[in-house]
Computed example of a mutant assay.
Amino acid sequence: MKMIAAAIAVLSLAGTAHALEPIDGSITYKNPDVQMGFSRVPVGSTFEHHFYDNGGDHIVETYRVNPDRTLQLIFRVHREHG
């Protein structure tokens, strides 16, 4: 039982250590008021945001709406230009 509890603790720490940070072009990058537009979106919903970085690479981010209506960046795909 202690082994299972230790494994769960390690996995939960590992999951938070790799949290994605917003980058230039992300919905939540330097935009604290972005949460205002998601008050009617169902909690737990996910959606994609597509944009291009300065180098012309296609970026696709997936966000989830949290119970407090904040957005959580949960996945990012970087597709190189060309």
Rank of each mutant, 00 (worst) to 15 (best):
E48G: 04
V43E: 06
Q72N: 05
I74C: 01
V77P: 00
L73Q: 12
D33L: 09
I74H: 00
H78C: 04
H78F: 07
Y52R: 04
T46Q: 08
A19V: 14
V77W: 06
F47T: 07
K30R: 13
I74T: 09
P67I: 02
A9V: 13
S39F: 09
R40P: 03
G37Q: 12
S12C: 15
H81W: 14
V34Y: 13
H18T: 15
Q35K: 06
D33E: 10
T16W: 13
V10Y: 11
I74D: 02
L13S: 09
R64I: 15
A5S: 13
G37H: 12
A5N: 09
A5D: 13
H49T: 02
K2T: 14
G44K: 02
D57A: 09
I27S: 06
G82Q: 06
P67S: 02
H50Q: 12
K2Y: 08
F38P: 01
R64K: 13
A5R: 07
A17I: 08
F75Q: 11
V60F: 05
T70H: 04
S39H: 05
R76G: 08
K2G: 15
L73R: 07
E61I: 01
I23M: 12
H81K: 10
F47V: 10
V34K: 08
P67G: 00
A14D: 00
R79L: 14
I27L: 15
L73M: 13
Y52M: 05
H49Y: 01
H18E: 10
D33V: 06
G25E: 09
D53N: 14
A5L: 15
T46V: 10
I8H: 02
H58W: 08
V41P: 00
E80W: 05
F51Q: 03
I8E: 11
V43G: 02
M3P: 02
P42A: 04
D57L: 03
S45K: 12
V43W: 03
K30I: 09
Y29E: 05
V60D: 04
V41F: 02
A7I: 13
T70A: 03
T70Y: 00
Q35T: 15
G56D: 05
A19F: 11
R69P: 03
L73D: 07
Y29N: 06
V43M: 00
E80I: 08
P67W: 01
A14E: 00
Q72V: 05
L73H: 11
V60N: 05
R69S: 10
A19C: 10
V10Q: 11
I8N: 07
H50K: 08
F75M: 11
S12W: 14
D57M: 02
